[in-house]
Amino acid sequence: MNILKLLADLAAVDPDSYERISGRRGVLASLGQTGRRAVAAAVPLAFGAVLQKAYGRQSATVLDTFTLALTLEYLESEFYKQALASSMTFPGNTRSVIQLIAKHEQEHVSFLQATLTASGAVIPAKPKFDFTGSKNGTAPALYPAVFQDFGTFLKVAQLLEDTGVRAYKGQVDVLITENDLLEAALRIHAVEARHAAHIRGMRRALKANVRYWISAKDEVITTPNVTDAVYAGENIDKQLLPDLVTFFPTPTTQILTGTKEQVAISLGEAFDEPMTAAAASSIASLFIYA
């Protein structure tokens, strides 16, 4: 499987995803209960069975989601692996912390691979990554010092972790009838959020102006038209519910005392926002050259 083609395909189908999901839901409604009996020890196998049924019924959406997830985990895992193998200096206890995060990302890779294997799907090969963003020297580098300067490394780490959190969140509705797959995705999603918060804390230790949660008060570290998709739409201060009428907060909602600006900032921070497969794919593609 060509990962770049896959990412392009994911981006291309995204506008139709709602329709695809809706159609899929009817087809798979009867499968909803099967996964719940899975025992922890047999998890990838049980998951695989569900995935295979979904795939076998010509609905690749669940498979798309897991393939996107694996791509993002490859990306993160390889990022930390290359950083740890580099000659970059890790101050204080940061090497052991990055080793722990790298271990989690590798575990996520293994978990997703096992799930795909159990489903009979072909595991996509790990792409080739260039974390300077220079596409193996064929384009201007976005982060030339990514594995030389610790501050740059942490910036890219924050972008990748926050992207991961948003990307998993963007896929949960695809998994809504697949209880065990959904729960596994949510459990990975929470780990990525813990990573993101700690990376942000590490940046704070280097005097960066950033909070542990995504905030309008964070200093901007993205580049317009290149990486700004990472936080696009993150700090909205209203939430939509099923009928797509903006309803929270209502004009009469009593939330907080404070200035209007403070309340808006808190509202933006209190909810992380999902990201489409298309956006996640385009961000991942910045660091993939083959």
Partner: peptide, 27 residues
């Protein structure tokens, strides 16, 4: 509890909140 939600919009909202809780927990 995410798996018990049947309404997609509520599942997404739960996801939007849980990652903030995870950030708090990490902090």
């Amino acid at each position: 509890a995410g798996k018990y939600l049947k309404t997609p919009a509520y599942l997404v909202i739960a996801g939007q909140i849980v990652s903030v809780e995870a950030r708090h927990a990490a902090y």
